[in-house]
């Protein structure tokens, strides 16, 4: 039996998300219709999401397979996502300039067109620009260099 792959996966993804949310409501009080508890509305929505997901999945069955997912940009995933996490985790410790420099440097290499000199220049320019705009200009209370990189 054939099925439209994208729609089938899409329906299943919504079903799974709906189930996860439904699971998350198990400690929440349902309340009554007058004074609805914190769990009332989420469980209704979770049910709705599962239902819509199921309809999408069922309707995908029997259709032609459709186009494929295409390529997954693994390189971008492994560079950009950790870069964002790093920024959040470390900006206090390393300070604004190093954090921006590292985020820009790491993420820039997710493009195959990037060259090392360009990436270094770009990241340095961005770090200086952000320091000027956000800290000097807007007075954002983040140190330019944090305790981890202050050696004096």
């Amino acid at each position: 039996m054939t099925a439209n792959r994208k729609d089938l996966v899409c329906g299943l993804v919504f079903i799974v998300i709906g189930l996860l949310f439904a699971l998350g409501t198990r400690d929440l009080d349902m309340g009554t219709a007058t004074r609805m508890g914190p769990g009332y509305f989420p469980i209704v929505l979770a049910g709705l999401l599962i239902l819509v997901g199921a309809i999408i999945a069922v309707r995908a069955l029997g259709k032609p397979a459709g186009e494929s997912f295409g390529e997954v940009p693994w390189r971008a995933f492994f560079l950009i996502i950790p870069a964002l996490v790093f920024f959040g985790f470390a900006v206090r410790q390393v300070g604004l300039m190093p954090a921006v420099f590292i985020v820009a440097l790491a993420s820039s290499f997710s493009s195959t067109k990037m060259t090392v000199p360009l990436a270094l220049t770009l990241s340095a320019v961005l770090a200086c620009f952000c320091a000027l705009v956000f800290v000097v200009g807007l007075g954002l209370p983040i140190q330019l260099f944090g305790p981890w990189v202050r050696f004096w």
Binding site: V103, S107, L122, L126
Partner: peptide, 10 residues
């Protein structure tokens, strides 16, 4: 795009 990511982070 690296600039977009850097600005969005801050």
């Amino acid at each position: 795009f690296p600039a977009i990511i850097a600005f969005a982070s801050i």
